Simulated scan of single mutants.
Amino acid sequence: MKEDPIRKLSVDDFVKIMGEEPQSEGLHVFIPKDFTQIRVTYPYRSSGYKLIYVAKGVLKFTINLITYTLEKNESIGIIPKSVIQILEISDDLRIISINFSTKFIFDNYFNKAGIDTFGYLTYNNVPKLQFKKQEGKILKMLAKMLKFYNQQENSIYKKELIRNTFGVIIYNYAEIFKRAYPDLKIELSRQEELTARFWNILQENVKIERTVQFYADALNVTTGHLSKILKEVTGKTASQLIESAVIVEARLLLVDPKLSVAQIAEELQFPDQSIFGKYFKKHVGLSPSAYRRGNRK
Score class of each variant (00 low, 15 high):
residue 101 S to W: 00
residue 104 F to H: 07
residue 97 S to A: 12
residue 76 I to W: 03
residue 107 D to Y: 05
residue 82 S to H: 10
residue 95 I to L: 15
residue 101 S to D: 07
residue 101 S to R: 00
residue 67 T to A: 09
residue 76 I to E: 06
residue 91 D to S: 13
residue 95 I to R: 02
residue 113 A to I: 14
residue 84 I to P: 02
residue 86 I to Q: 02
residue 92 D to K: 08
residue 106 F to I: 01
residue 107 D to Q: 13
residue 88 E to D: 13
residue 114 G to S: 10
residue 86 I to C: 07
residue 107 D to F: 01
residue 93 L to W: 11
residue 65 L to D: 15
residue 90 S to N: 08
residue 106 F to K: 06
residue 78 I to P: 02
residue 72 K to G: 07
residue 65 L to T: 13
residue 113 A to S: 14
residue 64 N to V: 06
residue 101 S to H: 00
residue 75 S to G: 14
residue 88 E to W: 01
residue 85 Q to C: 04
residue 84 I to R: 05
residue 88 E to V: 02
residue 112 K to L: 13
residue 92 D to N: 12
residue 100 F to Q: 05
residue 94 R to E: 15
residue 92 D to G: 10
residue 91 D to H: 09
residue 69 T to W: 06
residue 67 T to G: 04
residue 85 Q to P: 06
residue 88 E to R: 05
residue 108 N to G: 06
residue 75 S to H: 02
residue 113 A to L: 12
residue 64 N to D: 15
residue 80 P to R: 01
residue 100 F to D: 03
residue 79 I to V: 09
residue 94 R to K: 15
residue 110 F to H: 06
residue 99 N to E: 15
residue 74 E to T: 13
residue 110 F to Y: 09
residue 102 T to C: 05
residue 65 L to Y: 14
residue 99 N to F: 08
residue 91 D to Q: 08
residue 73 N to W: 01
residue 91 D to L: 05
residue 77 G to P: 00
residue 87 L to T: 08
residue 71 E to V: 08
residue 70 L to Q: 04
residue 101 S to M: 03
residue 111 N to D: 15
residue 92 D to H: 00
residue 76 I to N: 04
residue 92 D to T: 10
residue 72 K to Y: 00
residue 95 I to H: 04
residue 98 I to S: 06
residue 66 I to F: 00
residue 88 E to P: 04
residue 72 K to W: 11
residue 76 I to K: 00
residue 111 N to S: 11
residue 72 K to R: 11
residue 107 D to I: 03
residue 100 F to N: 09
residue 71 E to Y: 02
residue 77 G to F: 00
residue 98 I to L: 12
residue 73 N to L: 13
residue 103 K to C: 04
residue 98 I to D: 07
residue 86 I to W: 08
residue 95 I to G: 08
residue 98 I to R: 03
residue 74 E to M: 12
residue 88 E to N: 11
residue 85 Q to W: 06
residue 71 E to M: 10
residue 72 K to S: 12
residue 81 K to F: 05
residue 82 S to E: 10
residue 107 D to T: 09
residue 89 I to Y: 02
residue 99 N to K: 11
residue 111 N to R: 00
residue 95 I to V: 15
residue 70 L to T: 02
residue 106 F to G: 05
residue 81 K to D: 09
residue 71 E to N: 12
residue 114 G to V: 06
residue 66 I to T: 15
residue 90 S to D: 02
residue 71 E to C: 03
residue 88 E to T: 11
residue 106 F to C: 05
residue 97 S to Q: 13
residue 110 F to E: 04
residue 100 F to A: 07
residue 113 A to H: 12
residue 90 S to M: 10
residue 108 N to D: 02
residue 66 I to S: 10
residue 99 N to R: 14
residue 108 N to Q: 03
residue 96 I to K: 05
residue 100 F to T: 09
residue 95 I to K: 07
residue 69 T to L: 13
residue 104 F to M: 09
residue 103 K to Q: 15
residue 81 K to L: 12
residue 94 R to D: 10
residue 75 S to Y: 04
residue 72 K to F: 07
residue 66 I to H: 11
residue 106 F to L: 07
